[in-house]
C-alpha cells in the first residue's frame, strides 16, 4: 500500500548572517517524508542536517522554497499555529535532554499536554505512567531530573514527545550524549515506536545509528547529495548495514 506523504519540502533555502558574514546553510533542499517512515539524515558537522530538521518542523522560518505538513503550507502559518502544530502533531527529542529543571520527571512528560487539557489531568497522568512503564522508567516519576541518568532522561524526553500521539518524531542526535548501551536502548525504543506507526526522522553522524533506519539521506554543504534505502531492520546483521552506509559515504566523499 502506498504510504501518504506527511512532510514535503521543495527547494528549501536558508542562510544565516548578512553581507560578508552571509552563510548559506540550506541551498535548495527538496525532501519528502511519508507516514510511518523511519528516516535518517547523515552528514558532517555544518552540513545543514539540524537546520533541515528545524525547517521541516517549523521551528525555523525558511528563506526560500516551501514546506508542507499534512498538506498545510508552514510558510502561511502564524507563530501560534506553528506552536499548536508542534504541540499536537510532532514530537521532539534532542541531543541533551531538554527537560525543565524545576519540574519532576512526570511533570516534564505531561507538560505540553497539560497546556490544553488540564481538566483531564488524571487521564494525562495515567497515559504518562503507561508510557514510562513502557520505556522502563516508571519508578522515576517523582524524581528530580538531577536524580536520573542521561539515558533515563532521554527516555523521559521520548515519553514527552509521545504524549500527543504525534504523526512524526524528530530526533536530533538523540544518542549523541549517551554511552553505547544507553544509545542502543534509545534506538530500540525509537524502532518500536516506528513499528507502531509513528514516522521518525533522526539526524545523526553515526553510521551505526543510521543503520537502524530504512532510508538514509546524506547531506553535504546544505544539499542532499545522495540517498539510500535499506530493508526494515530485523535485529540482525547490523554490521552489514553499517558497511553499506560507510561504503556509500566513501563513494560520495563525505
Amino acid at each position: 500500500m502506498e504510504m501518504k506523504k506527511m512532510i514535503t519540502g521543495i527547494n528549501i533555502t536558508k542562510h544565516y548572517g548578512s553581507g560578508d558574514d552571509k552563510r548559506n546553510v540550506l541551498g535548495g533542499v527538496s525532501i519528502e517524508i511519508k507516514e510511518g517512515e523511519f528516516v535518517s539524515v547523515m552528514g558532517p558537522s555544518g552540513s545543514g542536517k539540524s537546520t533541515l530538521m528545524f525547517a521541516l518542523s517549523g521551528m525555523e522560518r525558511i528563506d526560500g522554497g516551501r514546506v508542507t505538513f499534512d498538506g498545510r503550507d508552514l510558510g502561511t502559518l502564524a507563530e501560534n499555529e506553528l506552536a499548536d502544530l508542534r504541540r499536537t502533531g510532532m514530537g521532539f527529542v534532542f541531543q541533551q535532554p531538554t527537560l525543565m529543571k524545576n519540574l519532576n520527571i512526570l511533570d516534564n512528560i505531561i507538560l505540553p499536554s497539560m497546556r490544553d487539557n488540564r481538566r483531564n489531568a488524571a487521564g494525562i497522568t495515567e497515559k504518562a505512567r503507561q508510557l514510562m512503564q513502557k520505556v522502563g522508567i516508571a519508578e522515576l516519576a517523582q524524581r528530580d531530573i538531577t536524580q536520573a541518568s542521561g539515558g533515563q532522561l532521554q527516555r523521559a524526553g521520548i515519553c514527552r514527545a509521545l504524549m500527543s500521539s504525534p504523526g512524526i518524531i524528530f530526533a536530533d542526535e538523540p544518542t549523541g550524549a549517551l554511552n553505547q548501551a544507553a544509545a542502543q536502548g534509545i534506538m530500540n525504543l525509537l524502532s518500536e515506536i516506528n513499528a507502531e506507526g509513528t514516522a521518525v526522522m533522526l539526524v545523526t553522524h553515526d553510521a551505526t545509528i543510521a543503520a537502524r533506519t530504512e532510508r538514509i539521506m546524506f547531506m553535504c554543504d546544505g544539499r542532499i547529495v545522495s540517498e539510500m534505502r535499506l530493508p526494515k531492520y530485523s535485529g540482525k546483521d547490523i554490521e552489514g548495514r553499517v558497511e553499506k552506509i560507510t561504503a556509500k559515504m566513501r563513494e560520495i566523499g563525505i
Partner: peptide, 14 residues
C-alpha cells in the same frame, strides 16, 4: 528554557 518551551509547542503568549 524558553527555546525548549517553544519547541514543545508553547506560544509566545503562553
Amino acid at each position: 528554557s524558553i527555546a525548549v518551551m517553544k519547541s514543545l509547542g508553547f506560544t509566545n503568549s503562553d
